[in-house]
Amino acid sequence: MSSAGSRPPGFRMRISPSLTPDRLLELKERALELRCDVIESLTLAGSGHPGGSLSSADIVSTLFFDVLKLDPEDPRMGDRDRFILAKGHAAPILYAALAGRGFFPREELASLRKLGSRLQGHPDMLKTPGVEASTGSLGQGLSIAVGMALAGKMDGAEWGVYALLGDGELQEGQVWEAAMAASHYGLDNLVAFVDNNGLQIDGRIVDVMSPEPLADKWRAFGWKVFEVDGHDIAEIHSTLIEAQESPSPAVIIARTIKGKGVCFMEGEASWHGNAPSEDQCRLALEELRGGGNRD
């Protein structure tokens, strides 16, 4: 395939051209529910990754409740859109979204990380309905998405591929191998998000091993780059419309706050991989349900 691969006839924007106020409100409510589910499931699990799950809640809400064409009754439906959670440690937000879309009962979120559960610590496509690829080892998800997008273009498929990466994950060299391949093969059916919350386990990404300047790097690798407030659903939505029209692969660098929505978690690297206690859970849910995060 040449780098100037033709645009598949079928891949086009399928999201509503603009959000009605009601729809926007619904997506915000969904994001709030996702955050509550994350907090509750992680508390019950006693371990896991709240920070990066909460930071990506608004992106995930927009994708799962407005953008992605999915069928919970037929999780392997041929023309579904594909979502790859490259930052697999944010599994709780994915599980919450899948439960919200009806892929499995919401009560099952309580089994997260438990022996015998379908909800593994990191996504397992063989166990969980709706999980497209097993991820968790950072740096590999974008390559999977590139392979899927290649297949989609070969088949002139109508579906698109969406990947969600962490910003610390960009330290993995393989991400840039995949980025190179995506533009080389002209994968205009691929949109990547970078959840740019600025923190990784050991601290600030710019202190641990800076991947900056992010936008310049993606641009240099041949991608169309967008930068958004990752907690502004209207902006995420309108940017996705533009991104889908890009003749090259598109990346949306979403500036986010790690732990967004729970004040004692926000901006704290220590909440990368620690579960809340029951008291902390109660406080977090009070804050979330009290509407403190709705605007």
Binding site: S143, I144, Q174
Partner: peptide
Amino acid sequence: QNLMNMAAGLALA
């Protein structure tokens, strides 16, 4: 590394 995981993506599709 990308070789192997692109192959995985193609298999998935």
